[in-house]
């Protein structure tokens, strides 16, 4: 069976990668393949990596407050590239009142501080559409 492939990505300039690394480890322990971009990725770089690596899921992490600009930028590029099958998730310090706009832009779900990693694993397993 095709393993779910996930790109864990840090858009923007913030260097807080504890969360994204913990989640990468948890997804890997749940049997997924995880690629981590490292810090300071532009939306263009993230989408290019996602295409190149042929991932099923992109998990974006931001703690600087730039999600309101950068998440929709990523979604815009994903739509432009026709990558409609890719499930895109957001995480980090994201105020609840910002979530509806992010979802409207196409982010499937937003996971805030204190989220249990099993919840994220379950969500991906239920919603990702791996090919093959």
């Amino acid at each position: 069976m095709h393993k779910i492939r996930v790109l864990a990505a840090k858009p923007g300039l913030d260097g807080h990668d504890r969360g994204v690394k913990v989640i990468a480890a948890a997804l890997r322990d749940a049997g997924m393949e995880v690629i981590y971009t490292g810090l300071r990725q532009t939306p263009e770089q993230i989408v290019a990596t996602a295409m190149q690596e042929d991932v099923d899921v992109i998990a974006l992490s931001i703690l600087s407050g730039a999600h309101d600009y950068l998440f929709p930028e990523v979604m815009k590029l994903i739509k432009e590239k026709g990558m409609d099958n890719v499930l895109v998730l957001g995480g980090g310090v994201i105020p609840e009142e910002d979530i509806p706009a992010l979802k409207a832009a196409g982010i499937a779900e937003v996971f805030g501080p204190g989220t249990n990693t099993h919840k994220i694993v379950d969500f991906i397993q239920a919603n990702a559409k791996p090919r093959g």
Binding site: L13, G65, A66, D68, L70
Partner: peptide, 10 residues
């Protein structure tokens, strides 16, 4: 260009 979305945030 890389400052987009980040100015004055943190």
């Amino acid at each position: 260009n890389l400052a987009r979305g980040e100015v004055g945030k943190v």
